[in-house]
């Protein structure tokens, strides 16, 4: 009986614990003034903030945030996936911009508990990007610049779309990895790039976003252009040489016969940031060199 009472007491104390010592939530910092110490937790967010003319206000970024040139020398608070909470808090930011996937959302939750203002953005497609630019402009007190940026992105995209609108659409196989071979499927933003650049994704609808494909499917889809993204720290010419050698095994493909194998800068086409429209344009130039007056 004595044990039972003791146990009951311990359990009650345990259950009531947080109510006793939980800290009182202080008021969050006021948002009336424009943030002066910004930390961006993803390369595309860095590009947006710097595009709004706030490079000087950025106090830290993540690894691989290398554009624009000026942010290369900024302190790093970890990698995109492995963020260092201590380093972030130590920089005393008055605004942290994060992406909306699980890890960064969890981090944002923890930062908010420490009264650090955080905004998260889901940037999955072009409309999300435009929305995020507008929202970041509003928070940072640069709405006019944000509107300007959105309009210029829309204008540039419309220009590319208009140029390729009437041209025949080549079938494009967009490889993201060679061994094993994986390509971009229909439900990806790569697909959006291909379509806006006046091409057609050679791979039909698939269960996977980036399906692994076999030789049979590659031969069946008969791509006219094969695109690869530049691997990290790879020399473009070297990768192009390797790609040509690799694809030679499928020498019945139109793309291989006409040598239309392209290596694109992955910064432009793999990152949903303000340079994505430039990525669309570069892709379009490769798909329709005649329309853009460039050498194939």
């Amino acid at each position: 009986m004595r044990w039972l009472i003791l146990m009951l007491l311990v359990v009650t104390w345990w259950a009531a614990g947080p109510a006793v010592f939980s800290p009182t939530q202080g008021p969050g910092p006021s948002e009336s003034h424009a943030p002066q110490r910004i930390i961006t937790l993803a390369p595309n967010l860095t590009e947006i903030v710097c595009g709004l003319g706030l490079t000087d206000q950025v106090v830290a970024v993540t690894q691989f945030s290398e554009f624009p040139e000026a942010v290369r020398s900024k302190p790093k608070v970890g990698s995109f996936w492995q963020l260092n909470l201590e380093a972030i808090v130590g920089k005393q930011p008055d605004l942290v911009l994060a992406l909306g996937f699980q890890q960064q959302r969890d981090l944002a939750r923890r930062l908010r508990r420490m009264h650090v203002p955080v905004e998260t953005f889901n940037i999955e497609d072009f409309n999300d990007l435009l929305g995020a630019i507008g929202a970041i402009g509003k928070i940072t007190g640069r709405p006019a610049q944000a509107t300007g940026m959105v309009e210029s992105l829309q204008r540039d995209l419309a220009e590319v779309q208009a140029t390729v609108r009437l041209a025949p659409r080549p079938r494009v196989l967009w490889s993201i990895q060679r061994e094993p071979l994986r390509v971009a499927g229909r439900k990806t933003f790569v697909n959006w790039i291909i379509e806006n650049a006046g091409g057609l994704n050679a791979i039909g609808p698939t269960l996977h976003q980036y399906p692994p494909v076999g030789a049979e499917q590659v031969l069946a889809c008969q791509p006219e252009v094969i695109v690869e993204q530049l691997m990290v720290q790879q020399d473009p010419h070297e990768q192009l040489k390797q790609a040509r050698a690799y694809w030679q095994r499928y020498n019945h493909l139109p793309a291989v016969q006409t040598q239309r194998i392209v290596v694109l800068n992955d910064d432009l086409v793999a990152r949903m940031g303000p340079r994505i429209v430039m990525g669309v344009r570069v892709t379009a130039e490769h798909l329709h060199p005649d329309l853009f007056g460039v050498a194939p």
């Binding site: 947080p18 996936w81 890890q103 976003q209 980036y210």
Partner: peptide, 23 residues
């Protein structure tokens, strides 16, 4: 069949990670 950010999140979880939790 997951997308890359889902894969990364799960992979890091599977590798074991310490995060800062509330009291």
């Amino acid at each position: 069949i997951a997308n890359s950010s889902q894969i990364q999140t799960t992979l890091f979880w599977l590798m074991g990670n310490m995060t800062e939790e509330t009291w």
